[in-house]
């Protein structure tokens, strides 16, 4: 009887001790006091300063290396090649471009006249003429309905659907984004296109062309597919450096 009582007391005491220990650990954050005197502090400071100067030296040498590498890289042939490649890519239309330009919108004429004229067709020849006219008047990059127009782009009629880069032009209004070399050129392009004959010609297809005022920043997407070259071959140079 007595031992059982003692056991219960011990158990209770153990639980209390456990809780007290946990509470103690939780509440009391160990406070570390700094007990160094002046000389010790000075020594520590010296040591730290030495480390600092060492680190500074390392930083300097690393920076020197970095500039050396940078210089080497800039003068290397690979860099020149890379530059050329990216230049050519942007020229071929494989990169996204943005700049000043105008946006032309083709929309069915019926909407304004009130008559229901079914339009789901823009003739490829007309579109080609429009693009030619744009190019003639200073356009550098162009995209029709989000499709980039590059040198090998074909616009043609396949099963009575006009396709550009293999994608159908069925959704109207159709947006043609054009980028010119500069803001002045964009302005010039805008003025010339307003007086252009092609705009009138679209009327035959029941389409109307509206040209928005030149904007400073128009973005044209990159050409999505790979450019296939089938009938071109590099010129073989004659042996002996001819």
């Amino acid at each position: 009887m007595r031992s059982q009582k003692n056991f219960y007391f011990a158990l209770t005491a153990a639980i209390i001790g456990f809780m007290v220990a946990i509470q103690f650990r939780t509440v009391s954050e160990p406070v570390v006091r700094d007990t160094r005197d002046t000389w010790e502090l000075r020594e520590d400071l010296m040591a730290e300063k030495e480390i600092q100067s060492q680190l500074l030296l390392e930083i300097r040498s690393n920076e020197e290396k970095l500039t050396k590498y940078k210089n080497e890289r800039q003068q290397s042939k690979a860099m020149v090649l890379k530059d050329t490649l990216s230049e050519l890519k942007s020229e071929a239309g494989l990169t996204k471009v943005s700049g000043p330009g105008v946006i032309l919108t083709l929309y069915p004429i019926g909407e304004e006249l009130g008559a229901e004229v079914p339009v789901s067709y823009v003739s490829p020849s007309l579109l080609k003429r429009l693009l030619n006219e744009l190019n003639l008047n200073g356009a550098i990059h162009a995209a029709v309905d989000g499709q980039r127009v590059i040198n090998t782009t074909v616009i043609r009629d396949i099963n009575k659907e006009t396709k550009i880069n293999g994608r159908s032009l069925k959704r109207f209004p159709l947006e043609i984004k054009v980028i010119a070399a500069s803001a002045q050129d964009a302005e010039k392009l805008y003025n010339r296109m307003q007086a252009s004959q092609v705009i009138e010609d679209f009327f035959i297809d029941n389409l109307q062309v509206s040209i928005k005022k030149p904007q400073t920043d128009i973005e044209i997407p990159a050409y999505e597919d790979t450019v296939r070259i089938r009938f071109m071959e590099p010129v073989e140079t004659a042996k002996g450096g001819g």
Binding site: F18, V20, A21, T26
Partner: peptide, 23 residues
Amino acid sequence: WLPFMGLVIGVIIGLLTDIRIPE
């Protein structure tokens, strides 16, 4: 002595297990 032992054991276990409850 048994309750005292219990208390000491409890404290030791509490300190050794390194349990901390949130503030």
